[in-house]
Simulated assay, not measured.
Amino acid sequence: MRCEVLNGSFSYRAGEPVLRDVNFSFDGKGVFALLGPNGAGKTTLLKCLLGLMPWSSGESRFDGRPLSDWPRRAFWSRVAYVPQARLPNLASLSIAEFVVLGRSARLGAFASPGARDWALVDEALDTVGIRSLAGRLCSEVSGGQLQLAAIARALADEPELLVLDEPESNLDFRNQAGVLSVIDRLVDAGLGVILNTHFPAHALLRTTTGLLVPKGAAPIFGKAEALFTQKRLTALFGIDVAVRTLDVEGRTVPVVLAVEPEPHHPAG
Rank of each mutant, 00 (worst) to 15 (best):
Y81G: 14
Y81D: 11
V82D: 06
P83T: 15
A85Y: 04
A85I: 15
R86T: 11
R86A: 15
L87H: 04
P88Q: 15
P88S: 13
L90M: 12
L90F: 09
L90D: 07
L90E: 07
A91K: 07
A91D: 11
L93W: 06
L93A: 07
S94A: 12
S94C: 13
I95S: 05
I95T: 07
I95F: 08
A96L: 14
A96F: 12
E97H: 10
F98N: 09
F98P: 05
F98A: 14
V99A: 12
V99R: 10
V99M: 15
V100M: 13
L101V: 14
L101M: 15
L101E: 14
L101Y: 10
L101F: 15
G102D: 08
S104C: 11
A105W: 10
A105V: 02
R106Q: 11
R106T: 04
L107C: 01
L107Y: 00
A109C: 03
F110L: 11
F110P: 00
F110H: 03
A111M: 02
A111P: 00
S112R: 12
S112T: 11
S112F: 12
P113K: 03
G114M: 08
G114K: 02
G114W: 02
G114S: 06
A115M: 03
A115V: 12
A115T: 06
R116L: 13
R116H: 05
R116D: 09
D117S: 05
D117R: 05
D117H: 04
D117N: 06
W118H: 05
W118P: 09
A119L: 09
L120S: 07
L120A: 11
L120E: 10
L120D: 05
V121A: 08
V121E: 10
D122T: 02
D122H: 02
D122E: 08
E123T: 02
E123G: 00
A124M: 12
L125W: 02
L125D: 04
L125E: 04
T127A: 14
I130F: 01
I130R: 00
I130K: 00
R131T: 00
S132L: 04
S132E: 06
S132C: 01
